[in-house]
């Protein structure tokens, strides 16, 4: 039983995670020691070693909080706080999630349309592709806050500007994946439908589109993770109504490290859930297309 677990994936992952936790605690004690020493000297308190370690792991604003402190904060701000409160991570999660999903939907649509144009039209291929690739070497995400502020200044605010940033980040993987996918049919398969004298429309729906599906889902997984990053960065400007980005920035202003870490973990969880959701959709689509499970 034990050996079977260790030869799979789960066992090694658990071992590595446990090791990381131990290292984390070690670092937490190490990093928080100077401040604790300082405090103890001023209060003229002498602590036993175990008591001291406990103290380093229960500071209010530690340099590095222990995992249990983050877990406690996460529990407090998700379960014990009503989702309508501004202190609830579910409240902020909803804000981030809605602009992520909206932007991702736009991005996927845009990506598919561009890929179709690129595959079917030489001019689009020649004129767009170099710029689409170049657009990704430009760190546009760095100006996300500016886009938000400027759009706010002319009266466009709310979810749309944030979604635009997510769109920008998520469309690229989709274009690249879909261009590959729509070109996946081999010459021999294209020749086959050519002998049927199929119209371009039929070739698209009966050959290219089904063959592109695996590519679409692979790039959608990358795309939705990118969309979330876009949404979080777009929430960084102060005065943003909320979201994990706003939580991060507020936490960094007030030195609330536990708050920063819990927002970070919450964002990571959200990312994992979103990728999982895309993966589930992929399975459903595969099943309906008769793929082997």
């Amino acid at each position: 039983m034990f050996q079977r677990m260790m030869s799979g994936t789960l066992g090694p992952v658990l071992v590595v995670v446990t090791a990381l936790m131990v290292i984390w605690y070690g670092f937490a004690v190490f990093l928080n020691t100077p401040w604790q020493n300082d405090k103890n000297t001023r209060a003229e308190v002498v602590m036993a070693p175990m008591e001291f370690v406990g103290a380093t792991l229960s500071q209010k604003r530690p340099l590095l909080p222990g995992p249990h402190q983050i877990a406690a904060e996460l529990f407090k701000t998700t379960v014990q706080t009503p989702p309508t409160s501004k202190k609830s991570l579910i409240f902020h999660g909803w804000i981030t999630l809605s602009s992520t999903v909206l932007g991702f939907a736009f991005g996927t649509l845009l990506g598919i349309v561009l890929a179709v144009a690129i595959v079917h039209n030489q001019t689009s291929n020649r004129s767009l592709m170099p710029w689409i690739i170049a657009s990704q070497t430009v760190p546009i995400i760095a100006i996300a806050p500016m886009v938000i502020v400027v759009l706010n200044a002319v009266g466009i605010s709310g979810i749309v500007p944030k979604a635009l940033i997510s769109t920008y980040l998520s469309f690229f993987p989709i274009v690249v994946g879909m261009v590959k996918g729509l070109r996946a049919p081999e010459a021999i398969q294209l020749d086959l439908v050519h002998t049927y004298s199929a119209s371009p429309w039929q070739t698209f729906w009966k050959l290219r589109w089904p063959m592109a599906m695996p590519y679409l889902f692979t790039s959608m997984k990358v795309g939705i993770a990118a969309a979330l990053v876009g949404a979080v960065v777009a929430e960084l400007p102060t005065g943003s109504a909320g979201g994990y980005g706003a939580r991060l920035l507020a936490g960094s202003y007030y030195g609330q490290t536990i708050q920063i870490w819990s927002a970070l973990i919450a964002a990571a969880t959200l990312a994992a859930l979103l990728v999982l959701a895309v993966g589930l959709t992929e399975r459903l689509v595969n099943a309906s297309m008769g793929a082997r499970p």
Partner: peptide
Amino acid sequence: RGLLPLGNFVAALPIIGIAPI
């Protein structure tokens, strides 16, 4: 086997969030 799934997972996370830390 232990690190590859974790690495793939972390590569998809909004790591940029560690900036304030």
